[in-house]
């Protein structure tokens, strides 16, 4: 079984390698001004050079490859999703869209701290960013979901002759201007905010009512007179399995046992508890010795 799996993997690797070599052969013929020392591919990623503006002396690199995992998720469909790595903190969704929009229609761009199989929680409103979005700091990865599968291969086969200029993106600014924009973006219109909140809660209430009704209907006999017995809701006999509850039960059991148990009653118990205490003290003593050794090492004073 293992050998069959190994063969399959090797075959797959060879296929990918030959594909990459072909791409490199193809791209070797292209002249890349100022990018001589940069390879087309590094660590399995195609590189995309970029710089902030025309005047910037230095350019940086993004890495791209097709999103391929065993288990796909709805948000990141296989075949149509491109993984972009080394995305700088200041890049917005607009910038990523701008870079890859030439290869096809982009349905969505998802930012994440690290590449994962599942998608991070998406923000459903600009006013209430998701907790994942809030904790996003530093360099990140982006998943670009195209409408067509071709776009991914187009992007991977494209040769970036010159660094992409981030300043060419509309509404992108650097420095003071960007901070002003960021500050202004955080200010919200009170009326629309309250309206949004009310609408959301209205929808939530409707969903909750529906759920309650469904639950209620479960307890009633159906047309044939059968009653469906479920485990949801402690009021209806069952209880939800939670860690807290398990711990609570465990604690209660422990207390019960402790009440019944006679501690330090028999001679052997007294002897054992004394032994245990001595062992603890010895253990502490050994730990103290180790700590003193550490303290001696860390202090600067050395006599003689």
């Amino acid at each position: 079984m293992v050998s069959v799996m190994g063969k399959a993997l090797n075959k797959l690797k060879r296929k990918i390698r030959s594909k990459g070599e072909k791409l490199c052969e193809k791209s070797d013929n292209v002249i890349r001004e100022g990018l001589d020392d940069i390879p087309f591919e590094a660590d399995g990623f195609r590189v995309v050079p970029w710089k902030f503006n025309e005047d910037a002396e230095h350019f940086c690199l993004l890495g791209i490859k097709e999103h391929k995992v065993r288990k796909s998720c709805l948000e990141k469909p296989l075949g149509r999703t491109l993984l972009v790595t080394e995305v700088p903190p200041s890049f917005t969704i607009d910038v990523i869209k701008h870079i890859f929009s030439n290869f096809g229609d982009i349905l969505e761009v998802i930012f994440q701290a690290k590449p994962t199989v599942h998608a991070a929680t998406m923000s459903i409103s600009t006013n209430y960013p998701s907790f994942d979005d809030q904790s996003l700091r530093g360099y990140k990865v982006a998943y670009v979901v195209f409408s067509e599968a071709e776009a991914v291969s187009k992007a991977l086969s494209h040769v970036f002759n010159t660094p992409f200029l981030v300043s060419s993106v509309d509404n992108f600014a650097n420095g003071l201007q960007s901070f002003v924009m960021k500050y202004n973006a955080e200010l919200v219109d009170e009326e629309s905010l309250l309206l949004e909140a009310k609408q959301f809660l209205k929808g939530y209430d409707e969903e909750e009512n529906l759920r309650k009704e469904q639950e209620k209907s479960m307890g009633e006999p159906d047309e044939d007179g059968w009653v469906t017995v479920g485990s949801r809701g402690s009021k209806r006999g069952g209880f939800s399995r939670s860690e807290a509850l398990t711990m609570k039960i465990g604690e209660a059991e422990k207390k019960k046992r402790a009440k019944k148990e006679l501690v330090n009653f028999y001679t052997f118990q007294i002897r054992e508890s004394k032994m245990k205490n001595i062992e603890e003290i010895q253990k502490r003593f050994e730990q103290d010795k180790r700590r003193i050794e550490m303290m001696k090492q860390s202090r600067r004073f050395r006599p003689y």
Partner: peptide, 15 residues
């Protein structure tokens, strides 16, 4: 130098 170049760009009108 590349890092300082980025610092200069990010600090436009501040540095």
């Amino acid at each position: 130098r590349g890092l300082l170049s980025i610092a200069a760009t990010l600090g436009q009108d501040i540095c």
